[in-house]
Each structure stands twice: as structure tokens, then as C-alpha cells.
Design a protein around this nucleic acid. Structure first.
Length: 431
RNA sequence: GACCCCAUCGUCUAGCCUGGUCUAGGACAAGAGCUUUUCAAGCUCUCGACACGGGUUCAAAUCCCGUUGGGGUCACCA
């Protein structure tokens, strides 16, 4: 039975790299019908925070990763000490006293060649004579990362260790522990790292790093997952949009790339839009309601849900992020549209009083106020006036929405309603 | 610096293992155009890469070696 683990340290939020490591572990477990174990590595009492544990668990759930088992290293200190003392008795480790008289347990590293057959990279060789003796239990009584990690992975029967590239150099140290402790070795697979646009490590300087930041910015978890998946794996048939359940069927750890990938926000936006197009408006509404309420665009407790869903449908195919709806569709919620200065300069400087007045009268006289009739009356008007449709369409759009871009004008008029459309047109009519 | 990893368009990648079908395919971005209404949507097109040098071979993006470049790790942090 395949058992993998994701072992975050709660000294910060779940970041993009961690999310990607979790993704590949989860994917591998699913594809092998194995178990996905979550282990919180909170041995550093100073830096580990409960709020980070909560945040990590929340983000993991948001991404859709359900774990089969959950462990906290802080609850397992006696296990690490027990194994360390065993090594002490066997003469494989020794005690070192600090000047203050505190004792640490140190593992003696013997010179030897170590080689691992990485599932992604193949054979990697190390020279243990270059590795110094390793601290097992620190003088404050807490275990070191590498030691706790090995004890846990062994006791939790982890069969495959899938983690970031940055752990390659920890591998020989851990392998030494496995053999000293008499545990059988798991398989190792080292994932390439994700880099920031500057070519270095992904950092706050080069963009948001926390998974939760992407949620707040309006990305769908499915889109983020799909994007992260493509950063070091491809289905092989030129498809870009591969949802997680398809990925489970196609995934093979051997096909994971070896090269570090650069995180590209533009492609993430595109991917998000791919998912947004087909997203359930009800689901998008749930994300948007708090944001709209925050701006007083709607009242949380009494708003027209059907109308909101209609507006979401009108915009969702063109949004890169869910949150963009709040700005892009603001004119549907505001009493007066916020007129963009550049748009005004371009389309509303010459006097269109006559045209606006006539069109508002036509809207008034429509037997049935619907998209088709609105367009018909508009086309008729411009042909009577002998002007090009676009000469009037753009100014009207700016008058109604304040923007030069948006959904089709006649739909905008329809959903804005007769009264609001007329009022916004008449504002620009000079007496 | 030492050790380790990596190397196909600006970016993500297919192809590499099992050399010939590769005048290297797709996607994002960028640029151009179309859409009797915009674009931030859609469609079409363009630009654009096998890091370099040696081998091996009839034949190399594919195999080998070296160089260069990039990245990672060298804590009683994880």
C-alpha cells in the first residue's frame, strides 16, 4: 500500500511551493490508491504558531486535498528521544555537553559512498566523508528536522517521499539514519523548485507566495491547481486544461520534469479565465457577495439574487479573476457610474445632446423592453440620423458604464433597465 | 568556495529513455488583422528555441565527455 506524506512546518502560511508539493503527493496517492498523510512539523516551539496550522489546514482543504491521517511532531517527542537513546546505546551516537552543561545527542557519520535512485532524477551519489556528525536531539531536548523526519516517515510507514529539490542534500543524512535505526528505505522523488520571475526563489518580493493570497485575489482553486500541475508535468497531448480528476488518471511520477519552473502570473490569469468561463454562477456569487457587500453595492441580507446571477453570467467569460467583477460591473450597483477620465475625453467631449435625447425617447416608447428591440430601435435611429453605429455606441457605453470596455451595449442597457439607462443618457443632454 | 541538481521559443512545455518521421509541435505573453459594438472575450496570422565545444554514429534536440550558465544545500531552522 502506497503511503505518502505532506509535512509542512507551521512557521508561515502554506505557500505556492508547499501547495505544489502537496499536489504531487496527493496526486500520486490518488493514482496509486494509496494514503495521504499530513504531518505538522512543529518542533520549533519559537517559530511554530497555531494560526499557521489553521491557515495551512484551511488552504489544503480549499485546494481540495483531504488527508487520511494527521500527526503533530510536537506530540511525538518521546519517540524521537527513544530512538536517539537506542543509537546512543548501540554506540552509533554520542553525547556532547554545552558550556552550560546541557546535553545534545550527536550521530556519528562514518565515511562511505551513498547513492539513491530518485524516481524523477535517477541515480544520485553522495560522499558521506563530506557530511559532518549530525545532531539528533538538541540540547533543549527537541529533535532536529532530519531525525524527526526519518523516525516519523519510518513509523508512519511512508513508502514514497515526494518533496522539493531543496531536500536532495538532506537525503544522504536521512539515509544514514534509516540504516542505523534498522528501518527499510522508502522511495525518494525530488520535485523541481518553482522560481520567481527574477530567476531566484519565489518570494514576496516577486509576487504573492501564500496560497490564501491567491484565493483572496480571486483565483479558483481548480485553476491554481491546474496551473501548478503544468509547471512540471504535461499530459503529453498538448492539452493545457486538465482538471484534477483527469490528472489522477494520467499522472505518472516518472513523467515529472527535472527543470525548475518560473511562476508566470499571466498564464495563471489565462488558466483562471478558462475555469471561470465554465464556473457555476452560484459558486461565484458566494465569493462575490461579501466583496459586493463590503463596498455597499448590495445588502447582504436583502439583494436580488436572480439579478446578481444574471450579471455574473454576463461577465464571467471575460474575467481573469473573480474579484475583477466588483470593479468591472460597478456601474450596475452604483447610482451614478464612475466616468473614466480618458474615456470621457475620447467619447463625451463633443455634444451628443440630440442623439442621446432621441435614443432615450426611443427607449421610452419601446413596446417590449428587451435586448432585440433595444438594438432594433438603436439601428433604426442611427440609420435615420445617417451616422455610423459605432459613433454613437461608444459614447453611450461611456455614459452608461463610465468605461470603454464591457459586455455588449444592448445587454448592458437591458440589464441596467429603462429608467437608469434613460437617466444616465439625459445627464449628458444640454438644455 | 565545496558538494549536489538542472539546461528546447521571453515564460510553461511536447519530443529525449527505445538516435532517422523535427525545415522541432502546443500553450501563455508580445505584435498584426478580423469581429456591419468596445476588449480585458472569440477567431486568424506573425515573431520566437534545441546554451557552447568536442566526441560516438551513415545519421544526434535525442547517447557520452567537457565548458559555460542557472539553481539548491552546506544550522543544536524546517
Amino acid at each position: 500500500m502506497v503511503r505518502v506524506r505532506f509535512a509542512p512546518s507551521p512557521t508561515g502560511n502554506l505557500h505556492i511551493g508547499g501547495g505544489r508539493t502537496a499536489l504531487f503527493n496527493w496526486l500520486f496517492a490518488q493514482s496509486q490508491k494509496g494514503k495521504f498523510v499530513l504531518r505538522i512539523e512543529d518542533t520549533d516551539k519559537e517559530r511554530s504558531k497555531k494560526e499557521f496550522v489553521d491557515e495551512i489546514l484551511f488552504s489544503l482543504k480549499w485546494l481540495g486535498f483531504n488527508w487520511d491521517e494527521l500527526y503533530y511532531q510536537s506530540e511525538r517527542f518521546e519517540r524521537y528521544r527513544m530512538h536517539a537513546e537506542k543509537l546512543l546505546k548501540q554506540g552509533l551516537a554520542y553525547i556532547e555537553k554545552s558550556p552550560e552543561g546541557k546535553e545534545a545527542i550527536i550521530f556519528k557519520v562514518n565515511p562511505q559512498k551513498i547513492s539513491v535512485n530518485d524516481l524523477i532524477r535517477g541515480k544520485i551519489e553522495f560522499d558521506a566523508s563530506l557530511i559532518k556528525d549530525q545532531v539528533l536531539i538538541k540540547s533543549d531536548g527537541t529533535p532536529t528536522y532530519n531525525f524527526a523526519c526519518v523516525v516519523d516517515d519510518a513509523e508512519m510507514n511512508i513508502t514514497h517521499i515526494i518533496r522539493g529539490d531543496d531536500h536532495i542534500s538532506n537525503t544522504p543524512k536521512q539515509m544514514l539514519f534509516y540504516s542505523a535505526l534498522g528501518f527499510s528505505l522508502p522511495e525518494f522523488a525530488h520535485l523541481p523548485l518553482i522560481m520567481g520571475v527574477d530567476g531566484g526563489r519565489l518570494s514576496k518580493r516577486t509576487g504573492a507566495t501564500a496560497i490564501s493570497d491567491y484565493r483572496k485575489m480571486g483565483y479558483l482553486s481548480e485553476a491554481l491547481l491546474n496551473y501548478l500541475l503544468l509547471l512540471s508535468w504535461a499530459p503529453g497531448d498538448n492539452r493545457e486544461v486538465v482538471n484534477i480528476s483527469e490528472a489522477v488518471k494520467l499522472f505518472d511520477i516518472k513523467n515529472v520534469n527535472k527543470t525548475a519552473a518560473t511562476f508566470d502570473l499571466k498564464k495563471l490569469d489565462w488558466m483562471n479565465n478558462q475555469y471561470l468561463k465554465n464556473a457555476d454562477p452560484e459558486k461565484l456569487a458566494e465569493e462575490l457577495i461579501p466583496l459586493l457587500a463590503e463596498r455597499n453595492y448590495i445588502n447582504k441580507d436583502s439583494y436580488d439574487r436572480a439579478y446578481l446571477l444574471t450579471l455574473i453570467k454576463l461577465f464571467q467569460a471575460r474575467l481573469p479573476r473573480i474579484n475583477d467583477f466588483v470593479d468591472w460591473a460597478d456601474f450596475f450597483f452604483l447610482d451614478e457610474p464612475v466616468i473614466d477620465a480618458v474615456a470621457k475625453e475620447k467619447y463625451l467631449v463633443c455634444d451628443l445632446s440630440k442623439e442621446f435625447k432621441l435614443f432615450s425617447e426611443r427607449l421610452d416608447n419601446l413596446a417590449s423592453f428587451d435586448v432585440v428591440n433595444i438594438e432594433d430601435s438603436f439601428r433604426k435611429l442611427v440609420s435615420e440620423l445617417g451616422i455610423e453605429a459605432k459613433k454613437l455606441i461608444h459614447p453611450i457605453r461611456v455614459a452608461l458604464t463610465g468605461k470603454t470596455v464591457g459586455p455588449g451595449l444592448f445587454e448592458v442597457i437591458y440589464y441596467l433597465g429603462r429608467d437608469r439607462s434613460k437617466a444616465r443618457l439625459l445627464k449628458w443632454v444640454k438644455k
